[in-house]
Design a binder for these strands. Structure first.
Lengths: 336, 336
DNA sequence: GATCTGGTATAAAGCGCTTTAAGAAAGCGT
DNA sequence: ACGCTTTCTTAAAGCGCTTTATACCAGATC
């Protein structure tokens, strides 16, 4: 049996499709008796509105497109929160992931083709010019990037986040605190700066020790080997890393060198990824607060969407900065 | 400026929309000169066809809906492969995830609303009756579940997979091989059985040692504590676990007890998840071969889609079983 | 010259819905 | 009775595309 159409429902309820349409979307107009009849008919026919047709007719999709990397656990958390936020704003989410055979460009095109009314881009790496071009099609919010001309940005505050990590370690009595750096880019720069500033603020400028790293376990492992290969007295008593994956690399190096964490070495990661929460790892880490990021993202989109409706297409982009939070776990303790 | 429509392209090229439509979809008919003119017009106008409208008009979406859990890394791998396979079959993917506020039911409804022509459900937990109902709407392939009435299933062969793990360990010279069980369910049963049978086959029936576990790190940790808390001589020399997360728990227990892996204990996980590949973990594991699962899934869907087109709506479901592969890493070695 | 090709082109009819403008019905004062 | 609201209903016109049926124009055929 073919799917029931609105016309079928209308016929069965003895009204026109116009009335049926109004009833099913809870619009004012139809009388109570008409409502009842339509509802009943829809129910018994198992009617599901055809979104395709309604989008075409109404010029509204109530859809927010999300660009993500499905292999990122951090994105997964964001999506979970975004979904809740989107629902709150009356929107639905449509997901599009970059894969090994599908770049950001194609992934975003898919979303546009679905007539999304707004786009939430999670950690986009495309050049800003492309973001600007997209923003001309529909409202755009980029997570993990500052705003640009015509689109908003939502960021976790990296410098204060890193500073909180250092403060925590200093509070425990550490002084020889090393830092394992991330890959090139604005995020790594901000975090490195956060570390440096915090160290100086505590009068530990002389102890600043920045090691080349990256964003993978291997990079952290390499830096860890360097740091822990030294004689015991010249080792740092604590290490802060660019992110959790990096920290896991350092952790691994520590295991190999027989360095106990947190007994001999305190370790702090960044991201509060599920990785950090593993029992084997149990890593103190800086959380970027996915819930807050998601809320800010949807709020930014909603503002632009409503703004567009009201005709005030503000061109300037706003950057929302979300405060990070330090999550203390088992990888940090007072120095030996 | 509003988006260009097909009519705009047609006008600019000096042809009808019918011709333009044919050209843009590479259909036979239009002459070479018409093709050229349309292509040029489309190019200069930056025309992007409106998928919504074309779906409505053509009754085809060329869309395959994927139900997944965005927080599962295994699903992420599957999606990556599915995307490639779908492209090969001329389909596009649309993703819908279950979240904390959005059950499978709602996630699947979204997909149906998009007029997906087929559904790939990754590890669905809904009752079979619901799967059957879905299958009446469009072709369905369930990954990680046996086929049912009207839908296909794609499974990794759990018993041979587990047997391969045991064979590997026996080949290394292990005899005292314990097993940490998973949660209730058909998958865990199959794996447990695989372990038991393999042990018996090797004449090690007396050494069978099944421990209650689960599918999380904590469960593995508990079982590990039990196993490794015994005097050295009564400990197993190798442990196989229900999955990688469980194995990580055992690994953690080993670290706490000062048991070296793989020196004092060999450990095999299941899933070959990214977790297993972490430098800190480096776990020998049984891979479910996401690429093969994805291929089988899309093939099953494609068969049904073509079948439906040809009118042969075969009701019976087929279960495709994919052979698992043992990935040997650093957590297994000859017994001390 | 009439008829039939086969290759191109297009007018027009939808797809399933929303929306607008206008009509019918009902209430209500004078 | 008559206008004049107010309330409810619906016919009909799209949305942007695909598709079918028809028209057209060579040139080939008889």
């Amino acid at each position: 049996m073919p799917r029931a159409r609105l016309a079928d429902v209308a016929t069965r309820a003895g009204v026109s499709t116009a009335t049926a349409s109004l009833v099913l979307r809870d619009r004012p107009g139809p009388s109570a008796s008409a409502r009842e009849a339509v509802r009943l008919a829809a129910e018994t026919l198992g009617y599901r509105p055809d979104r395709t047709a309604s989008v075409l007719a109404s010029h509204r999709s109530r859809l927010v497109g999300v660009l993500l990397d499905v292999s990122s656990t951090f994105h997964a958390e964001l999506v979970d929160q975004l979904d809740a936020e989107a629902t709150r704003h009356g929107y639905d989410l449509v997901l599009s992931t970059v894969t090994s055979a599908r770049g950001e460009r194609r992934a975003v095109e898919t979303l546009v083709d679905f007539r999304c009314e707004g786009l939430a881009l999670l950690g986009p790496t495309m050049p800003e010019s492309q973001l600007r071009a997209l923003a001309r099609l529909c409202p755009v919010a980029a997570v993990g990037r500052p705003a640009g001309d015509g689109f908003d940005g939502v960021l976790a505050a990296d410098r204060p986040g890193m500073a909180a990590a250092v403060d925590h370690l200093v509070g425990l009595g550490h002084e020889a605190i090393a830092y394992v750096d991330g890959p090139r880019g604005p995020i790594a720069t901000a975090r490195r700066r956060g570390y440096r500033e915090a160290m100086r603020r505590h009068g530990l400028g002389a102890a600043v020790d920045v090691r080349a790293g990256g964003d993978h376990e291997a990079s952290g492992m390499g830096a860890g080997q360097d740091l822990l290969g030294k004689p015991r007295t010249r080792r740092p008593s604590a290490v802060v890393t660019f992110n959790d994956r990096c920290a896991v690399g350092v952790l691994n190096a520590a295991l190999r060198h027989g360095v106990d964490v947190p007994g001999d070495l305190s370790l702090v990661g960044y991201d509060d990824s599920p990785l950090a929460r593993l029992a084997t790892v149990d890593l103190t880490s800086v959380s970027q607060d996915p819930a807050a990021l998601a809320t800010a993202t949807m709020d930014a989109l909603a503002a632009r969407l409503d703004g567009a409706a009201a005709g005030s297409r503000s061109a300037a982009g706003e950057t929302v900065v979300v405060a990070p939070a330090l999550i203390v776990r088992g990888s940090t303790a007072c120095p030996a």
